[in-house]
Design a protein around this nucleic acid. Sequence first.
DNA 1: CCTGCAGTTGACCAACACATCAACACATGT
DNA 2: ACATGTGTTGATGTGTTGGTCAACTGCAGG
Lengths: 229, 229
Amino acid sequence: MATNVLVVDDTSNVRTMLSDFLSSQQFTVLTASDGREALDIVQSDKPDLILLDIMMPNMDGYQFITQLRRSSSIPVIMITARQQEMDVIRGFDLGADDYITKPFRMKELLVRMRAVLRRTAAQEQENAILSINGISLSRSRHEVRKGDALIDLTPLEFHILEMLMLARGKVLRRADMSMKLMSNGYAGSESTLKIHIRNLRLKLGDDLNLPRYIETVFGVGYRFLEETP
Amino acid sequence: MATNVLVVDDTSNVRTMLSDFLSSQQFTVLTASDGREALDIVQSDKPDLILLDIMMPNMDGYQFITQLRRSSSIPVIMITARQQEMDVIRGFDLGADDYITKPFRMKELLVRMRAVLRRTAAQEQENAILSINGISLSRSRHEVRKGDALIDLTPLEFHILEMLMLARGKVLRRADMSMKLMSNGYAGSESTLKIHIRNLRLKLGDDLNLPRYIETVFGVGYRFLEETP
DNA sequence: CCTGCAGTTGACCAACACATCAACACATGT
DNA sequence: ACATGTGTTGATGTGTTGGTCAACTGCAGG
């Protein structure tokens, strides 16, 4: 399947130029002229990569990245003018993956896009199927198994388990988990979290006093166990 | 402490130019004129970042990265001529972190160096494990081990031990520790501190008269020992 | 319309961590 | 030896945290 690229720039000249070139390179191109529009497109089309002009009216590039990163880890390459170069650091802080200065050679853009896509693809590959301690979670099939037996989870339960397993034995603080759930459209209050952890333990067949999967770390949060002692 | 940068290039002109510039930017600079020499320096000096010219006699940049990655994850920024640009992909495959094409602006080099250092620093932070004298404390896992054995600590005990280990052998005044605990929501009176220090010593299996871990500095406070005398 | 499920919430209880005190033992520096 | 700082101990009270439950909402399918 073709790679989807979202081009975000306020000048239509740049949009069409990039669009033409990238199309000729077998990319599927979407365009947006400001941050708000871009966020909508991200929601509906889930592009694989975003090319983002930092200087924009309405919502500028920094605000856009901040918003984007609340709910998505789609890679971003910033496009900047030369005098802004030092501001790029701020973009990196907010979660951009690379940058390129105008005017740039198309060859260089391509190389950087491929490098970024390679990096994130490698990451996704790594986490396509999380299998820890007898529990396996397939992200693409949205499916959880204990050994061979299929375990039926609600969307929220799945989401929480995914967070825990992605962390691979690291402790997740309750507050962080709440934040993440909220950014995904759930209420995410701590009492809600408690209930769903309980349901997960029930469905996974876990024992509170001697947990094999989800362990409580008092005063901190939860962790998915990697080893059974 | 200053950041160590290793510059690998076969032309002495480039080496001195980069060296001068980076020194002026508060980096400590090491140089090598070919891959073999560079590997030796990596061994002995463990630089924080490597600037690598791809075109070199003897051992070229690709071979160098391949060798390097067998034993180290030090970040690498490749330096290439424009015609080689497409080959950069190969460099990324072998484990390089970024690249820049000659001729480049010093500003851009700086930005990319900072970005790469930031990325790897973030990673290290994530897996930060304080390991001193047989005791290892993992912040992300919220876990303390003595050798392999897991040691169960309460949140406050964990916090105090973290403070001591972060200080790495420096003495912490009782008053300072109290302050810090208070700012973190604990009562933190000095008499309470004593109790928790005692509990820590118990759990770590420490001997008061011949402490291996937490030493009392009379009239001042406590220190975590780095070596056992 | 009813049913059932997902998500949410607040109340309740149990387990736990923390603070504090008192009384004494011990160690340290002058 | 003395004064003072530090460690040990147990008992006790308190506040916090986490688990459980039951009840409510909102929504989708039959």
